[in-house]
Structure formats: structure tokens, C-alpha cells
Design a protein around this nucleic acid. Structure first.
Lengths: 254, 254
DNA sequence: GAGTGGTCTAGACCACTGA
DNA sequence: CAGTGGTCTAGACCACTCA
């Protein structure tokens, strides 16, 4: 069938592998294959060259090539079947949810983000915040509430609680750079985030902030983020205008 | 600090590795480590034994042990830092979004699911359906609409379109087994799903079906699912009562 | 300097698929 | 049967962190 056509990757794609640089070989390979899928050089349904052959052609070991391919499989762009081969998944590609801040999201989509800082205060952790941040009840925390806009249109109301060490953050930096960038600047590397996505009606106050009618439907997300030592460094409750923001997820059966 | 305590995994955890059975060694190891995390044998913040040492103790090669650990890192239960070690992430564990049907979800949470079949018909693919399923405009497709209940409480209205080969599905099977189980029985293995999660107000009809007030906020999901050959085999638009259902996602920075 | 995870090699054997 | 991906080994060298 036409769908299973063999398709050999152009040699040119792998001409300039940098073997001594800091970028891992498997990453260089996976980037090139992914690019070939996204720009149509590898059409949907087509078969990828087999692992062993590809490894020989590139002068790499099979595990290295295998890892490159597996990374793309995990992104949902390829499917593999034992005894069959590797094929490009049909359907247009959608960007998946990533561990990024809203600030980054809006920047990437060519909108100009801005922020109104609504609240910036020290509060004692209540039951929920204490549990989410793994601190004892009543511990001081930084409580912030922000209105985020894209091209001056309100998109989200974001409420966050952070461990007390962040009380020294400058409010102006928060407005200028966004929360995650400020945390990165303080040496915090976010590694894991657990999110719960749901929906509810807006409160009258939120309706005013987001410029929607009263009782409009809002998309909500609760998120707890952990740094690279496994410590909870942020808990937040966000609500988004569903006409301006939604979440995309790609799931891959393992 | 107490949080970085060394913690050696009890030998007993790895007593009965089955080296000749069909279950991969890395999977057996990762299951045991994950179990030790979930039941508290490995407390949050504790350090896991290093890869090389663990491999020696278990009589396995380092890549095998490494893969076992990496699988758990990808689930968001462990974090690794070069030069430091591997630690258990803080915070309670939440089940993440998986590639399962609602039927499975409800069964897993000990509720009794049931289904009312609202629509079961052949319709010509419109623009959206044709694009999502990668078929030509006007191709016959199976269009179904179902009301899903848990313990007789309405939870979701689910509308789906499937390629015409599924027109031979027996409506009774859909009610008894759920869509995904019926597809599995026909040899379809789902591999990749792309989902978009958002929110909107309910229509008057949906409000009646879901037993909520008019204009209530609903959680919505559009999903396209692909089988193991990369072909689109399902497109659906679902809406959920947000008080009874939400989505959990665990994100891991790579 | 010692210990850790990150990358990479060059093979091996197996399970599954389709002709 | 040949071809494919799935698993596994036994090393190697490097980059990074901390004492």
C-alpha cells in the first residue's frame, strides 16, 4: 500500500553531526528526524529506515539511534511495531503541554504579554497551601495574584503561593519577567509539575477582571511545581478565559 | 540534612527477579522501586542508591537499572541531578492522565459506570471530521452520542465519529463494554491520542442531560486517537461535569 | 579527588511480523 | 524465512557537584 512506502532519509540531513560538541548525538539525530517529519520530507504514513541500517549509515551505535527514535515516539510523532517498522503518525501535529509558564506560552505565540499585579503579600499557610508546599500550618508564604493579558486583552487570573524565601522578590521583576523567569534567576530549576485541570463559573470579581459576562465558564488549573531536588516551590490556582486559552496534551501508550 | 538521608533499598524487594520470564527486567525493577516509593519505604526527599551500585547488587547491567530508574523519573516520582544523585519528589502522588477511556476511569475509581446511547447513525464527514480522521469530505462515518453515568449520576456527554468500518458495531456492545473495549475487540490498538481541553457553557439540552442548571460551566475535551499504524481511528468531542470529573497531568522537564 | 549521573559503543539473543 | 523492533550485557569516557 502507498501508506507503507519505504522512505529513506536524505543523507544530507545527517551531514554535519557534531561528535565532539556538547550536544548529545541522539539529540542531534532526533532533531533532524523530527524536522523531516514536520516539514513533510517524511510524509505521514511513511516508514522510517530501520534502526540497524540507520545506525550503520550514520556511523553510530544502535542504542544511540534507538534513543533518538524513541524520543520522537514519546512525542507522538512516530509509532513502532515489532516486526513491522516505524511509521509517521497521521494527522496534523499539535504543540503539547509543556512545563512552561503562561508568560512563555504567550510569547511563543507572538502575542505581547503584560501583567497587572493585584496582590503581593505575606500570608500564613492555610491547610491547603501547607499541604501542597509541604510546610507546617501557619508558615509565612508569599501570596501573589496577577492578571495576565495578551495584546492588552485579559486572559487569566493567576493566584500563587510560594515558600517564604521568595518574599524577597521584587514586585517589579514579577511584572517585567514573569514568575518562572524570576525563579530561574534565583537558581530554581523546575523539574516536575502536577496539574489538575477543571472548569467552573467565574465569580463577579473575576468576570470584571477578565472582561467576560457574569457566570461565564472559566477553565481552571491547579498546579504544584517541584524543583530539581524534589521540593515543592510553587502552588497555584489559575483561571483562564476558555475562548483565549486551552490545554493540549499528547498521550502515548507505553 | 535529614532530607538527603541515604536510604538503601531492602534486598527483599529484589529477591524474586524473573530472569527468563516474559516480563522485562527493567520493568520488574521499576515496579518494585515505584512500589517502595508509594508505600513509604522510600520516604519523600530520600536518596536512592546510585545506579552503578544498584546494578552490582542486583546482578544486572547498568543500562538495565538505568532504564528502570528513568521510567520512574518520567512519571514524576523521582528527580535526578548529575553529581548529586536521585531523590524522591515531595508531595502526594496523583494519578496522571492516561490513554484510557472514561469507562476505564470510572471503573478504576470504584464507581459503577453505565451508558445511555443517544445517537447511533451513519453521517457524511463534514470539514472538521474529514480533517481529523484524514478521510475525504463526505465519506460515511459512524456518529455516536452517549450519556455516561457513574452510580446513576450523569457525568459526561460524549460525541464521537469513527471511520466507516465501525458502522458494523453492535449498539448493544457499545452500551455494555464501552467504545475502547469494542475497538480493542476488533483488533484496534490505540497508541497515540491528541487532546485539547477547554471549557464552555452548557447548552440547554446538555444541562438537562447532565442534570445541571442552564448555562452551567462544563469541562470539554476534543480528542483524536491513532492506532498502532498511525491511522486516525476516532475523533470525539466530550463534555464533563467539572464537579465530578477533572484531568490530572504530570509534566516532567526533560 | 571521590562520587554521581549522562552519554556512547559493539556486540548479543529474542519475539514478532509478513512473505 | 528474512527483517523488524525489544531487551540486555560489560564495559568506557565525560561533566558535574561536593567536600
Amino acid at each position: 500500500m502507498a501508506e507503507s512506502e519505504e522512505k529513506v532519509l536524505p543523507m544530507g540531513l545527517f551531514m554535519d553531526l557534531e561528535r565532539s560538541g556538547p550536544i548529545p548525538l541522539y539529540f542531534q539525530v532526533s532533531q533532524r528526524i523530527e524536522k523531516a517529519i514536520l516539514n513533510g520530507e517524511l510524509p505521514v504514513g511513511s516508514r522510517l529506515e530501520n534502526e540497524v541500517g540507520l545506525a550503520q549509515r550514520l556511523g553510530l551505535s544502535r542504542p544511540t539511534v534507538r534513543r533518538a527514535i524513541q524520543d520522537i515516539v514519546d512525542k507522538g510523532l512516530l509509532v513502532r511495531r515489532r516486526g513491522i517498522g516505524t511509521q509517521v503518525v497521521h494527522g496534523q501535529v499539535t504543540r503539547k503541554v509543556e512545563l512552561t509558564s503562561l508568560h512563555d506560552d504567550l510569547t511563543n505565540t507572538m502575542k505581547t504579554p503584560s501583567t497587572h499585579l493585584l496582590t503581593f503579600e505575606s500570608v500564613a499557610a492555610d491547610d491547603t497551601v501547607a499541604e501542597k508546599l509541604s510546610v507546617v500550618l501557619g508558615t509565612p508564604t508569599l501570596h501573589i495574584r496577577r492578571l495576565r493579558l495578551a495584546d492588552d486583552v485579559p486572559v487569566a487570573v493567576m493566584e500563587n503561593w510560594l515558600p517564604e524565601e521568595f518574599l524577597t522578590i521584587a514586585p517589579d521583576d514579577l511584572v517585567t519577567y514573569g514568575l518562572y523567569q524570576v525563579m530561574r534567576a534565583r537558581g530554581i530549576t523546575l523539574r516536575v509539575a502536577r496539574q489538575r485541570i477543571s472548569a467552573r463559573k467565574s465569580t463577579p470579581e473575576e468576570a470584571g477582571l477578565l472582561d467576560v459576562e457574569k457566570n461565564a465558564a472559566l477553565l481552571t488549573m491547579d498546579r504544584t511545581a517541584f524543583d530539581n531536588s524534589g521540593r515543592a516551590v510553587e502552588f497555584g490556582h489559575h483561571c483562564y478565559r476558555p475562548d483565549l486559552y486551552s490545554f493540549e496534551v499528547t498521550l502515548v501508550e507505553k
